[in-house]
């Protein structure tokens, strides 16, 4: 699960940062050492830190690049096998079409009233993808679902007091065309 990996990296980074602050607060009690001495060394080190940070950010950016969710990237390797129209409204979802695991599914998502967000949760309760459902626009979310079972569609954009009850079950079968089952 990529989100757990992200959390692990975050936790490690946060702990390192926390340690830096704790150590700094202890070293700070020593002294006073004349400031020019401290500053001179620290600001030479800063240039290194600047490039290191820039390098890390650039590396993460490049690593994440292939996983862009936008439809043109997801469809680059071939067209979708199944098409589903999705319309959100306060507080329910209407889905037209069936969904299977055999190929890419193209969800064409819109809203009939306010902003919603189509979030698809797999049978074990993890988000597999999402896209905003906006009035006046149709957004295409392309997903390749790997396991069949009972998925849940949840609204992920606050749309009024009924927001948390705006979910529905979605059965995903093993078919490939979306016309069967």
């Amino acid at each position: 699960m990529i989100t757990y990996l992200a959390f692990g990296i975050f936790l490690a980074g946060a702990l390192v940062l926390g340690c830096v602050f704790v150590v700094a607060s202890q070293v700070a009690r020593r002294g006073p050492t004349p400031y020019p001495e401290v500053a001179g060394r620290a600001y030479r080190l800063r240039l290194f830190w600047f490039f290191a940070l820039g390098g890390i950010l650039a590396a993460v950016f490049l690593t994440a690049l292939p996983y862009v969710p936008y439809a043109n990237y997801r469809l680059a390797s071939g067209p979708a096998a199944m098409h589903v129209n999705v319309a959100g409204s306060q507080y329910s979802w209407r889905l037209d079409g069936t969904v299977g695991t055999g190929g890419k599914v193209d969800f064409a998502v819109t809203s009939v009233d306010v902003n919603h967000d189509f979030g698809l949760y797999d049978p074990s309760g993890h988000l597999v993808g999402q896209v905003q459902a906006m009035p006046g626009y149709t957004n295409h979310l392309v997903l390749q679902l790997s396991e069949p079972g009972d998925y849940t569609v949840r609204c992920l954009e606050y749309c009024g007091p009924g927001h948390s009850s705006m979910f529905m079950a979605l059965h995903v079968s093993t078919c490939t065309t979306g016309c069967c089952c």
Binding site: F21, A24, S25, A28, P32, T33, V38, R46, W49
Partner: peptide
């Protein structure tokens, strides 16, 4: 990360 927070840490470092 390179100016304000970094600078803050340098400012306190061995400042007594």
């Amino acid at each position: 990360m390179t100016v304000t927070i970094y600078g803050g840490l340098v400012l306190v470092w061995r400042s007594g």
